[in-house]
Amino acid sequence: MATVRFTKGLFIHNEHAGSQREPVIEQVISVLKEAVGHVERKVITEPGEGEKLCYETVQDYDIVIIYGGDGTVHECINGIARLEKRPIVAVLPGGTCNDFSRAIGVPEDLDAACRLLKTGVVRKVDVCAMNDRFFANFWGIGMITDTSENIDENKKSMIGKMSYYLSALETVRHPSFFHYMIEADGRKLEGEAAMVVALNGNYIGTVDLPFQANHEDGYLELIIVKDSGFPLIKEVIQTKKIKATGEHAANLEHYHVQSFTIQTDHPMLIDMDGEVYAVTPAVCNVKKGHIDCLCSA
């Protein structure tokens, strides 16, 4: 496979990403310099800085290399997606779960991920617009938002992704239900749910979900979960079997859509890529192939 090479790159890293040892960052940069002629470095130190940095500066670069977790990627994508001229994006896993990079085939090993700068292929990856924001991996309300909100930050720093599982288990045991009204590709849907999720990728909290979401097909997998408890846990445990048979363990509805609007009986917090800051109602649509990402072959 031909080596991918770039003239000028911007290396953005979250100061909290991965190991905090400076030699690790210098090691990453030394690998990047083998594939990028000139590399500049910027450090994200506060929320919102990544989006602002990307929106204002990345048009001057051939490639932007983002080292951080899903939150950092979410910020940077929200800056890049609004641009007319968008550079190629490479993501290096530096967070707790790294769901987006995992979904597009970026290795969890940092050295292997860096080597994609030399060996990877560029693919046109879908991103999704919600109102005036963007998400790369998933959108959700209900239990998924409760899970994000209930994560103990002290546990997260100590036990990493296990903190997501513990929060998810607690949320599944004590769900809250809400009334929704959805119009999806002209189809009207209404009822009670514990969770509504729109998947652009197939991983949340490192869990491979029992659906066939694809970052390159121009569609979202819209999932309406009607109940929780053991059937929902079984849904995740039996992912491979469910993908093979299409027979779901939980009581849910599944739609393959390009866009949808949603209203709820009260404003509900929205989780996008693990970041919770917006509320319903929402209008979502897929922007097919909107960003060029460096991926595994």
Rank of each mutant, 00 (worst) to 15 (best):
R86M: 00
E56R: 14
E22V: 11
H38L: 13
E34L: 10
V36T: 03
P87N: 01
G37H: 13
H38N: 14
A81V: 11
H38F: 13
G71S: 12
I25N: 02
V31C: 12
G50T: 01
G68C: 13
H74M: 04
V91R: 04
Q59I: 15
L92W: 01
Q59N: 15
V91W: 00
E75Y: 07
V43K: 04
E75C: 06
D62R: 07
Q27V: 12
I80Y: 04
G79S: 07
T57G: 02
E75N: 04
R41P: 02
D70A: 09
P23I: 09
E34W: 06
A35P: 00
A90P: 02
H38Y: 14
A35H: 06
D70Y: 09
V89W: 00
K42W: 03
V36F: 08
K85T: 02
T45F: 09
P23L: 02
V64D: 07
R41G: 03
A35I: 01
V39N: 09
V36L: 07
R41T: 15
K33L: 05
I29M: 11
V24H: 05
Y55G: 14
V89K: 00
Y61N: 10
A81S: 11
E49Y: 07
E22G: 03
K33G: 03
K52P: 06
A35Q: 02
L32A: 13
I88R: 05
I88D: 05
G69K: 10
V36P: 01
V31A: 13
E84H: 12
L32F: 14
R82T: 07
K85W: 06
G69S: 08
R86I: 00
Y61W: 11
I63M: 05
L32T: 00
A90F: 02
I29Y: 02
A81N: 06
G48Y: 04
T57C: 07
V58P: 01
Q27M: 15
V28E: 05
V64C: 12
Y55W: 11
R21T: 14
N78V: 13
D60T: 15
V89G: 00
E56Y: 13
C76P: 00
H74I: 02
N78S: 10
L83H: 05
V31H: 13
D60S: 15
G69H: 08
